[in-house]
Every structure is written in C-alpha cells, then in structure tokens.
Amino acid sequence: MDAAAIIDKVLESGYRLARIETGQPAQLVAVFRRLPQGSGRSVYHWRPGGGLSRLAAEPILIPRTQTPPEAIAYIRASRHPGVYLLEGFGGALERPSIAERLAEFATGEEAAGVLILLIGEYLPVPDALRPQVATIRQNPRPSRRNGTSPGG
C-alpha cells in the first residue's frame, strides 16, 4: 500500500491517530518521503535522539522537538495539514502524560488535517488510548533470491 493510500484510508475512517506495525520502518519512511508534493500535506518524521524533521529534498530539522512531549506540543500547535511519522515512540506511550496528550489530540478540534502515524515493529497502545487509534499491519514479504524462498 502506498503512502497516499494509507493516508486516505486513515482519514476516511475518521481517525487522526494510527499505528502502522511494520518490521521495515525505514522503508515505510522512504515511501512517505515520495508522497506527492501536490497533496497539500507536509510529511514529518520523528525518531528518538533526532527530533522532528520535515521530509523534503533536504530534510529540515524542527527546533525544540527532540523529546516526545516537545514533538507532541509542536504537532498540536500545527496550523497546516500534515502527516507526522513517529518512529520508535512505543516507549513514550507508556508515559500517562504522553498518552493523555495524544488522546486529547485524537478527540480534539485543534490541528485539523493533521495525521499522526506511530510506526514500528511492535507498538503497544495503552487501553485508554486504544479507541482513538487505528491499526494498520504491514506484513513484510519474505525476501527472494533467484526465484527461491528463504530456506528453500
């Protein structure tokens, strides 16, 4: 499924927060990097230690977004449609304050047109947040060499 289809699917569902469980987050980020610029949505990527950056021809680092609370605050204050890929955010979800901020975002009116996608291999979602989170599972295909499957 391509990035535009994922975004459309989640937005049509009414969710503003989704998790994409994938064993290949770097490949998923690369797909979103190619999101058509005419889509009217900017795409941002966050990962631990790196902060939030806008995915463009040359990535643009967003200041004061290195920690999960800073990233969520920036996203909630956003006035422009955008897609925020939060990679490696699973540990932050265990913090009640982060889960609460995300729940407020998912049910609130601020940041219209903004979609948060949590991406990673395993993303446990707190029970209180679960009703506001759509889940998409991207099953990695087995690699194939010379027409054979792994181990065969």
Rank of each mutant, 00 (worst) to 15 (best):
A5C: 03
A5V: 00
I7S: 08
I7Y: 00
I7Q: 05
K9T: 13
V10N: 06
S13F: 00
G14N: 10
R16E: 09
L17C: 02
R19T: 13
G23I: 14
Q27V: 12
L28A: 14
A30L: 07
A30V: 08
V31L: 15
F32S: 04
P36C: 05
Q37I: 12
G38E: 15
R41I: 00
R41N: 09
Y44I: 05
H45G: 11
H45P: 10
W46C: 13
R47Q: 14
G49C: 12
G49P: 04
G51L: 02
S53Q: 14
S53V: 08
L55R: 08
L55V: 10
A57L: 15
I60H: 10
L61M: 09
R64L: 08
T65M: 03
Q66T: 11
Q66R: 11
P68H: 08
P69F: 00
A71N: 01
A71S: 05
I72S: 01
A73M: 00
A77N: 07
A77T: 07
A77S: 06
S78H: 05
R79Q: 02
H80E: 08
P81H: 07
P81L: 00
G82T: 05
G82N: 00
V83L: 01
V83K: 01
L85S: 03
E87A: 04
E87W: 00
G88F: 01
F89D: 09
G90F: 09
P96A: 08
S97E: 15
E100K: 13
L102C: 01
A103Q: 15
E104K: 11
E104V: 06
F105D: 02
F105Y: 08
F105C: 00
A106P: 03
A106V: 01
G108V: 07
A111E: 06
A112T: 15
A112V: 13
G113P: 08
L115G: 00
L117D: 00
L117T: 10
L118Y: 04
I119N: 06
G120F: 07
G120Q: 05
E121V: 09
L123V: 13
D127V: 04
A128H: 09
P131V: 02
Q132L: 14
V133H: 09
